[in-house]
Simulated scan of single mutants.
Amino acid sequence: MNSSTPLTTPDGRYIVVRGRLWRCTNPELPEPQRQHWVQQLMRARRAVAQAKRARDPQAEREARDEVDAAKRALGERGPVWWQDGATDYTRYKAANTPYAEWYATTQATRGD
């Protein structure tokens, strides 16, 4: 695995970024739908950056709302996409979750 590939939990629910868990896209989304929402997300993120450069708080708020809508459609925010009732650990430090032992092992083998 190269350093640009995010570490993914064994159950495929999260990626780990700087030690924190972030929910993955719903793997059940049909590929055309996933691609549509990823394109929307990237467009909205560019709009956030543009609004920040222009110092336009209204445009920034609208763009951030578009980011949120895309992330919800992808399953990265809002209700969880898994059906087993497991808790959502998004934003938690991996070391403070049931993934702690797995994470510690991966860090030892990755040398991070």
Rank of each mutant, 00 (worst) to 15 (best):
Q58K: 13
K93Y: 08
E76T: 09
R110D: 02
T90Y: 01
V67G: 14
R77A: 13
A94S: 11
R110P: 00
L74K: 03
G85S: 09
Y92K: 01
V17E: 12
R110V: 02
P6V: 03
K93M: 09
R72H: 04
T106G: 00
R91E: 11
P57R: 05
G85W: 03
A94C: 15
R110G: 00
R110Y: 03
M42N: 15
E101G: 03
T5H: 01
R55Y: 04
Y103P: 06
R46P: 11
W37A: 06
D84W: 00
S4N: 13
A73K: 13
E101W: 01
P32W: 00
Y103C: 06
A73V: 04
T9D: 07
S3C: 06
E60H: 05
E62W: 08
A95H: 00
V16N: 01
E66I: 11
Y103I: 09
P10N: 06
L74I: 09
W22A: 01
G111S: 03
A54S: 11
Q58N: 09
T8M: 07
M42Y: 14
V80F: 04
P27Y: 08
V48N: 10
D11K: 02
P98M: 01
R110F: 01
R34K: 08
A94P: 13
S3H: 13
R13I: 05
V16S: 01
P32Y: 00
R64F: 08
Q107I: 03
L41V: 03
A95Y: 00
G12K: 02
R91C: 03
Q39R: 15
A73D: 05
L7E: 04
A94I: 04
A44V: 06
R34V: 09
W82Y: 07
P79A: 07
W81M: 13
A69I: 13
R72V: 05
R46V: 04
W22D: 03
W37P: 14
N2A: 14
W102C: 02
